[in-house]
Design a protein around this nucleic acid. Sequence first.
DNA 1: TGTTCCGTGTTTTTT
DNA 2: ACACGGAACA
Length: 827
Amino acid sequence: MADTIDILADLTPEQIEAVTHVDGPLLVLAGAGSGKTRTITRRVAYLVSVGIAPVNILAVTFTNKAAGEMRQRVGELLTFLPGRQRADVTVATFHSLCARLLREFAAAAGLDPSFNILDGSDQAKIAKLALDRAGISAELLPPARLLSAISKSKNRLQLAEQFAAQNTDFSSRNIARAFAAYEQLLKENKAVDFDDLLLRMAMLLRDNAEIRTQLQDRFQYILIDEYQDTNHAQFLICHMLALKHQNICATGDPDQSIYGWRGANLGNILDFEQHFPNAKVVRLEQNYRSTKTILKAASALITNNVQRKNKSLWTNNEQGALIKIIFAADEREEARNVARELRDMFDKQKMRWDEMAVLYRINSLSRVLEDSLMEAAIPYQIVRGTEFYARKEVKDALAYMRLLVNPSDRVSFERIINVPTRGIGPGSVDRIISFAQEKQINLVEACRHAQEIGGLTKKAAAAAVLFATHMAACRAEFSSLINQAEDSSVENIDGAEFSDDIDDADAPVPDFAADVDVNEPFPTVSASSQEEEIGLDGAIDADEIQNPDSSRGKSRSLHGVAALMDRLLRLFKLIDHDKREAEEVERVNNLLELINVAAEFTTQNPTGTLTEYLEQVTLVSDVDKLKDERGAVTLMTLHAAKGLEFPLVIMIGLEEGTLPMSRSFAKSGRDDTDMEEERRLAFVGMTRAKKRLILTGALSRMTRGYGESRNPSRFVAELPKDCIELFDAFRQSRPAGSPGFRDNVQYYPRRPQGLPSVTPDTLRGSTTSTAAFHRGMLVRHPIFGVGRVEEYFENGDNSKAVIDFRKVGRKTLVIAFAKLERLDAGS
DNA sequence: TGTTCCGTGTTTTTT
DNA sequence: ACACGGAACA
């Protein structure tokens, strides 16, 4: 029926073996860069081509981005199928798959189908509350330690009770009590954490034979990617799903296991053949990605791990350049070295910015780097922890939606009941919450009856009632989007409950709200048009928002979640038009962007509910949002880089204490499991590089304000001498026993004092006159956008200006390199 | 009640 | 050095 020629085109014999193995367990041990993604994608297509129904195929990936890409590629390969069926293959991450199934089987899992999924910061809040409730001080048991203990326990499918039974020492008894309080709080909030998604799914499969059989028959062919990073709960889930039909295909690479700290169990992949007898094993050892030099160095490094299955990667690629190793005096100089190397690659090797990446062990290392990249006018994008969905205004807006779906969500309620400030202080909030608990009603319901709550000020009570009224209005208007919450609380709902006519009668929009034009949507902004929306005086034009695009003819109307969000922002006045500071402009832009995300969601998912939307935004990770941004260097952690590749990779912070991290130093008498994971992390980083690899470090690094002296990483010393060239800033002798560079040391030319780090070559093309700047004038920077000059220091070629950029805040720039464009004369 | 300022802890890595 | 939470003030 299908064109299997196409599906098997340009695959190696080993890859074909993996692709065409249809029935029975299969383990694909795929070395770095061995074409694994391609192999499993083709395998899905192959299964369909031999007549297996797409609905019976489940592919589990590590990130949502990987899932999206696979869905797309599989779709492209399945052109022989009608479009409708192409989308029937389930491609998901473990977490999103479990979330989906737990909603489907909520009753059996003992969950409310509209449960919230807590993100990291919500989890931390709950942990603090739990400690509070259990009467344990945060210094006796730090919230982070509690959370890690809970997470470990849940990975083993143990809840508070079993934890208490198994651990009886003093510290564990405290943890057990806090754990129980934590679980109680989750229940009250109708919330689950990330680990719960896995644990509850595993328990459901274990305890409910009927559902287990049903899902086994639904997912007859299962593919699991990045199998080396699965934890015990995930193992149990795939094991139970695959038990009946035994068609499980696991792919992974033990040498790339870097999530042991999160409970990943290397035994899952190492013992696959014991778990699934008669498993076929295919090894992919040819590397298509890197040069011989890079591959040789990475292989040499990983050979130092003892707990390891031997494996030899090889490649037909060119020999390639030596790996540069550059050590600097301190982290600022290291950052300048990085900027110069990037610039060189761009200027001399004609490499595009988006072909380069800088990788580091911990997020905090990106700070200095950003400064020097800005100074050198190198465009970059950062994939990091504090990003879009962690922004306060974004979390606030999402909390409104969560509360709408789930009026018992205390975390969201506490977050936004007084945002924007409406006179309901902490005391009033406590009273409302207690009232809700007493009367066994949800929090929004409690607000509706605020007049009956003793101890509230008139203002607070009125505000609470109004809040409830607005919530009810939204709920009514968008009932078709929100239905799941009703499902659980109302028995045998008839359709009329959700019909439109109930809106006005049940929950009228209060009159006073008429001053907000609730029917006029915000303009949706695309990234490119955002700049235009910002007036030169630094504030978004309120009229632009209120009367969007009438002049452009087509007035776009918002649908689905985007429309709901738009309504929420207006109804609850989440955008303050009076504040006209740069900060507020950014807030507004973030919220507009959030509307865009919602609109996008509705486009891709026309029948998507609010719950599904919220789930998506909670489960996306940083890497998922990594855009293929043309013309920007990518900065990210080594963990985030897994699965990616770049022609040039620069790894920074190659020091003892940073990579490897100091906590991984072998404790006396223990094995060095942690150290081996650090080595794998370095291995993953190195094998991301296709053409060029540069490793850098600093001999002194600022930590908590003061400089600490550092030694070069042992991993550098483990690289074969004929693969590397050393550059060393200083002749300093190093402490005995530290890996040193006594042989063949070339010295990096030191930068003359007082000169900027970037070579004068970079000045070519810059036509900026340094004399033309003064306080108050508006300028545009190619990367940071528009800003106002706050201070200007004239100093010849080294003139600097402090500029307050609307988007990125205040920066100090060297005029000669910053390529600033004058916008007006200022005032 | 809301805002500002100061002292404290904080840095692994993430679904 | 920085961000956050608590205390003091408006």
